[in-house]
């Protein structure tokens, strides 16, 4: 069965194989399914059944546009770009806003929080939507600046600025929401 043999192939190789045999597309989809569902949920806070629909639409869009994939990009950046667009379209269509749920499990992002018992269930909806998404891509999906630039279609300098501002705003919100010591 194809799905059992495809772990040895790179994404780019699988794209080429898919163009010859559609079944190989399952390998690409399966490889990113869990990550992308989590990403959609994180940037939209939508229930998983909506995330499923968005992901399915994204996969179909990716399949149709497979010939447009430029191998000078990383496949996952290209796929995340499609998922990002589909999620934004879904939110616009259903009059939702980006509303992120961040898990307090990222060491790098919350590294500056020394006190172990701090409440990090933060009011993240106060963050600008673009700040929320960029934090997810940087600290949870662990993309580098170049990849984030390709996903969000921003210049790399803008990505760096947005990350710096997002961290600053996050910190300000956190400081405000932190219970004061007696």
């Amino acid at each position: 069965m194809i799905s059992q043999n495809c772990t040895k192939y790179s994404d780019e190789k699988l794209v080429k194989l898919t163009l010859a045999n559609n079944d190989y597309f399952f390998c690409l989809m399966d490889r990113y399914e869990a990550k992308l569902l989590r990403y959609i949920h994180r940037i939209s806070n939508l229930p998983y059944y909506d995330a499923d629909d968005i992901l399915q639409d994204s996969y179909i869009a990716a399949f149709k546009n497979l010939n447009d994939f430029d191998s000078s990009y990383k496949f996952n950046s290209w796929l995340y770009r499609i998922v990002h667009n589909q999620t934004i379209n879904f939110l616009k269509k259903h009059h939702h806003h980006l509303s992120i749920s961040l898990d307090p499990d990222n060491e790098e992002f919350i590294g500056w929080l020394d006190e172990k018992n701090d409440n990090i269930d933060l009011p993240l909806d106060q963050l600008k939507p673009i700040y929320k998404e960029i934090l997810v891509l940087k600290f949870f999906e662990e993309f580098n600046y170049k990849e984030i630039a390709a996903i969000l279609h921003f210049p790399i300098g803008t990505v760096a600025t947005l990350i710096r501002r997002a961290k600053l705003q996050f910190k300000q919100i956190y400081e405000k929401s932190k219970p004061k010591n007696p």
Binding site: L19, D23, Q56, I60, K64, N65
Partner: peptide, 16 residues
């Protein structure tokens, strides 16, 4: 989702 999508692609005969 991956399996459902692949089935859908085949059923609708979607091509790149």
């Amino acid at each position: 989702v991956s399996q459902k999508t692949l089935d859908f692609i085949k059923k609708k005969n979607i091509k790149p």
